[in-house]
């Protein structure tokens, strides 16, 4: 579903992403891990066509992120960290705007269905500026899935949410993956959440992909470590010496 080959992003002399290669299979919930500044958001920005790579290539649902960016956009949904929509518009109006831009022929039906799926109908007619962080996050998610994308990108989706919000979001992600078959690519710092949600992981370190495998294989491989947190530090601790999978 996502195929990345030698993807590179440089800003002058600084290399933000150093030739990463990766495959995310259809139906996976892929957890993309790494320290701050490791290059996770840069990767997501390129995969969502917001940034152009300086080298390498990537395809999403078979479409090239540079030469077929419009087709890629039709197949993806994106929820950035601290999602902020248009504050003066209501949640419904925001969704209507994104639904219409996505070319949905019956926006009203799609909005109703999405709001119901996310249990967000009760605050649909409130202005975004009046919503709590958790509610805004749900509307942010709603705009990303309203057109039923093949791939959903989530950048630190749990950031700033309270424990209830985190649990609700986790349930939504899993339901979305199971019921709609959506492939999910998720940047996260919360390793506990990744362990509970993801089916595969990748670890970035200073712009380099130092590890990638399914979660099941990872747990088997690092069976002496009792948590993903310890596994993560084990991978990242001597990242330069670890072979790439």
């Amino acid at each position: 579903m996502i195929e990345i080959k030698n993807l590179t992003k440089k800003y002058g002399a600084f290399t933000a992403l150093d030739g990463i290669s990766l495959i995310v299979k259809k139906g996976d919930i892929f957890g993309f891990l790494g320290h701050n500044g490791a290059g996770k958001t840069t990767t997501t920005n390129m995969l969502t066509t917001l940034l152009e790579p300086t080298g390498g290539s990537a395809t999403i649902a078979g479409f090239d992120i540079v030469s077929q960016s419009m087709d890629v956009r039709r197949n993806i949904g994106y929820v950035p960290e601290n999602v902020q929509l248009y504050d003066t518009l209501t949640a419904y109006e925001n969704l209507e705007f994104f639904a219409q831009l996505s070319g949905i022929s019956h926006p009203r039906d799609a909005i109703g269905e999405t709001l119901e799926f996310l249990q967000a109908t009760s605050f649909a007619h409130k202005k975004i500026g009046e919503l709590s962080k958790g509610m805004r996050q749900r509307i942010g998610l709603a705009q990303a899935i309203i057109h039923k994308p093949a791939v959903l990108f989530l950048d630190e989706p749990s950031a700033g949410l309270d424990p209830t919000g985190i649990i609700q979001l986790r349930e939504i992600i899993i339901r979305l993956n199971k019921e709609e078959g959506t492939t999910i690519f998720m940047n996260s710092h919360l390793l506990v959440e990744v362990a509970k949600t993801c089916t595969a992981i990748g670890v970035l370190n200073h712009g380099k992909l130092v590890y990638t495998d399914t979660l099941a294989n990872t747990l088997k491989r690092f069976k002496n470590e009792d948590s993903l947190e310890k596994i993560y530090f084990s991978i990242n601790g001597d990242a330069d010496n670890k072979p790439r999978n």
Binding site: N45, T48, T49, L50, M70, R73, R74, I76, G77, Y78, P80, E81, N82, V83, Q84, L85, Y86, D87, F98, L101, S102, G103, G140, Q143, A144
Partner: peptide, 16 residues
């Protein structure tokens, strides 16, 4: 209003 928030990112990930 869009540059200060992530609304711009959302807009530019739509087929527009």
């Amino acid at each position: 209003k869009e540059r200060n928030t992530d609304a711009l990112k959302l807009l530019l990930t739509r087929p527009v």
